[in-house]
Computed example of a mutant assay.
Amino acid sequence: MLHSMSALPHLSRIASVPVRDVWAHEAHHFTQWLLVNADVLSDVLGMDLELSEAERRVGGFALDLIGTDLQTGATVIVENQLEGTDHSHLGQLLTYAGGTDPATIVWCAAAFRDEHRAALDWLNEHTEEGVRFFGVEIAAVRIGDSPPAPLFRLVAQPNDWTKRVHTENAAAAGTRTPRQSAYEALWQLVLDQVHAKYPSWTSARAASRDSWITMPFGTSGAWYAFVCSGPRPRVELYFGSSDADENQAMFDRFLARREYLETGYGESLDFQPLPGRKACRIAAWGPEGYDVLDLSQHGAMAQWFLAAMDRFRTVTQEVRRAIGEE
Rank of each mutant, 00 (worst) to 15 (best):
T263A: 14
H298R: 07
T263W: 01
C280T: 04
P273A: 02
Y290H: 13
C280I: 00
R311S: 14
K278E: 11
R281T: 02
L295I: 11
L255Q: 12
A302D: 00
A284H: 11
E262K: 04
I282W: 02
L293D: 10
R321C: 02
V292T: 08
F305I: 00
E288N: 14
R320E: 10
I282H: 01
L269Q: 09
E259K: 12
Q272V: 08
R313Y: 10
F305W: 09
E262S: 04
E262F: 08
Y260M: 13
G299T: 12
L261S: 04
R313L: 07
I282T: 03
R321Q: 14
S268Q: 13
L306H: 05
V315F: 07
Q297S: 00
W285R: 14
A284Y: 11
D310H: 12
A302L: 03
S268D: 14
H298F: 11
C280Q: 09
F254A: 05
C280E: 00
G276M: 09
P275F: 03
L269Y: 10
R321N: 08
P273M: 02
A283G: 11
Q272M: 10
A283S: 15
Q317G: 02
P275R: 05
D294N: 14
A308T: 02
Y260N: 03
I282Y: 02
R257Q: 15
F271M: 06
L261I: 09
M309P: 00
C280D: 00
W285L: 15
W285N: 14
R277I: 03
R253Y: 06
R277N: 11
I323W: 12
G264M: 05
G276Q: 08
